[in-house]
Design a protein around this nucleic acid. Sequence first.
DNA 1: ACGGCTCAGCACTTGTTTCG
DNA 2: CGAAACAAGTGCTGAGCCGT
Length: 636
Amino acid sequence: MSTLANPAKPIRALSSAEKARTPVSMAKTDLGESVVVSRYEDEIWDFWPYIPQNNARDSEKRINWRIEIAPGEFLTDHQHAPLLESTKDFTWSLFIDPIDGRQRPRMATVIAHVVALTPLLRWMASRGMRQFRDIEGRALEYVPIAKINQRTGKPTAKGWHARRLIVLEELYLQREKLADALPTHPWPDESGFTLSGERAKGRTIKTLRIPERTVRQLAEVAINYVTNLAPHILSTRDALEQAVANKEGFQATNIRIPLARELGFEGSRDLSAELSYLRDSCYIVIAMFSGIRDSETLSLKRGCIAHDKADDGIDLIWLHGTIFKTGIKPHKWLVPPIVETAVRVMEWYRQPYAIQIEEQISQFEQQLDMSIPGSTFHKRQLKRLHTARKDRDGLFLGCAPCVGHLVGVLSKSTIHRRLQNFCPHFNILGDDGKYWRLSSHQFRRTYAYFVASAELGDLHYLREHFGHWSIDMTLLYTSGASDAYQTDTDLLTEILRSKTEKQESVLHNYLMTDAPLANGDIMLADLRQTIKTAKNKQSLLQQISSSITLNGTGHSWCIGNAKGTSCGGLCVFEADMCVDCAYGMIGPEHLPVWKEIALQQQTALDMSDLGLPGKTRSQRILNKALDVIAKLEIPQ
DNA sequence: ACGGCTCAGCACTTGTTTCG
DNA sequence: CGAAACAAGTGCTGAGCCGT
């Protein structure tokens, strides 16, 4: 990766000519030579060499200084030259000479600062201010302006007001490093946060968890594509491709369409739509059953699946990838077999694109050889070469129709749009009866919830896919990997959080209501009473919840195992043990299970060939089950 | 062989989660 | 808790595929 020379002189000490030629971003060629990508004087500061994320687009990796600061007027216009220079100075200073006490920001953050600064520039233009120092004494006028969303005229989203105001404070903090800045604090007795009235407290997680019913529908569709439809769709694609090789125009069309119809599709268009849904399904399966983030999914490469044997001989499947949050680190995730299937399908899916991208790479290499270093063409092809090389092993390859058919890893906005379209197309609904609005991060939360459910033993759906975690994988995760790949401990934290939440809600039902109990009433009676009279019920509930560990057996909740007391977990196999156990709780949610148990034992008893010991056992279990059912069915 | 349509990127903005 | 990083959303564009 490229490095920037740390200038010996601070920005304000540079002459205009010196400053103009200063590189702000650089890249390396194959020969190891550094090539300047952007200079201070450029209209666009392109930071592509510094932002590795595959899921970000080029446009998110650069600053375009041609900001429209008034209708028809741009920051790059001649009359705004001083303001442009001040803005560039400030922006560049944030990176090259960070605010005292702060770490050097990532380039993406620097770009975000410019975004937050834009409304200020517009306001300044509208007031005829040409320099930041003109703001002095008038900063408070800007406060209400900064609260308004420029596009809609409505108040800005939470956090943005503060973010826009904080930029002014930073203009003050950097004052000694800049020729033009805020000489005095914009609001001496306040901070951007207090001014905006947006305290950072009380943050809650907003990303929705996909409801169970919706997950089931989604999983059904996606798994069907990945396991059943994939071979047909992909082999048809390949067959068509082969049949039209070396043919063009209508000749190709005349072959393609009848063949597609012959193979069970409505036409060529239908086939490509199905191909896209197949790709969406792979994305969904991978995200849903591995819990990885969007940026991580899109950075997956071919061959990212590895097998491994646990000590007890269980086959483990690892998904290898990269985590970008706070630096680029190789990571691995434990995944169920369906994820491997989806990766294999994508490896097939990407093959034609892989061939194309290799062709593009050699084309770029040739063009680079023949062009003049430093020319715009040379720069552009250098960038395309770097990008293509980075993407050449990518799993989620696609093709951009409007940029010269460049092949590369799909962007997050494409994935996002495709996900939004997925539920309506397959008629997948949320609990409110409307189409579920799917987005990429929901999968992470949903995954954590389902894994927690699997661990608590009350997972109803998709058990075989989430259950792979239940064999106490926590140990495997934390005891660490021996290879270069780290495990994703954040995901583990997420799962634990989900588990705690679930446990709390289970206890909530037991303690806050008078739901009938078949067992556990003695243990809970006191607690129920305490809770009823407690002032702060919620915090008491949390306190109780954090002091015990629930284990789901399917037919009861067991709080005994963790303490090494009671049955030691045998109740998982011998349901009737829980009925009298001091550490068991049996409530309304277990009623169907107990009915099933009763039915089974009755059937067993009806069979004549059951020996006496067997009969005794069945009778014992049946009696207890009937007892449980009777208690749970008492009208409240 | 031509008009409609689709799909993915671009540009810009807002929103959310996690790090130190 | 503030800063940083990551994610989502939307109008627009246009190349070129698709199918009559």
